[in-house]
Design a protein around this nucleic acid. Sequence first.
DNA 1: GCTTTGACTCTCG
DNA 2: TCGAGAGCCAAAG
Length: 99
Amino acid sequence: MPTKFQDKVYELCSKVPKGKVTTYKAIAEAMGTKAYRAVGRALNKNPYAPKVPCHRVISSDGSLGGFATGIKNKVKLLKKEGIKIENNRISKKIIIKIS
DNA sequence: GCTTTGACTCTCG
DNA sequence: TCGAGAGCCAAAG
């Protein structure tokens, strides 16, 4: 079991509904921290790999940010979810905020 | 136990 | 509009 911080990150990731995405910033803010980078780093480890849809987490300005298994794979996964991706950019309108 | 790094974000030029 | 620099926190080395 990873740290509480990571656990929180993964939990928030799970809260993202299918067909929508969220941002690293939103996650960090949701857990009451500004460790945006720590969130990304935690997801890179991704001990919950298939359990948590970490591919639904992107950067704040709509870019994909990055992906451990490759951006291309991330794009493919998101497209499967019904998310439109253009030039490695996600429509900001589908970006949601975590409660 | 301190230093470096990172799937980030913001601000300034 | 685009590029570079600084700031932030947590985990790994």
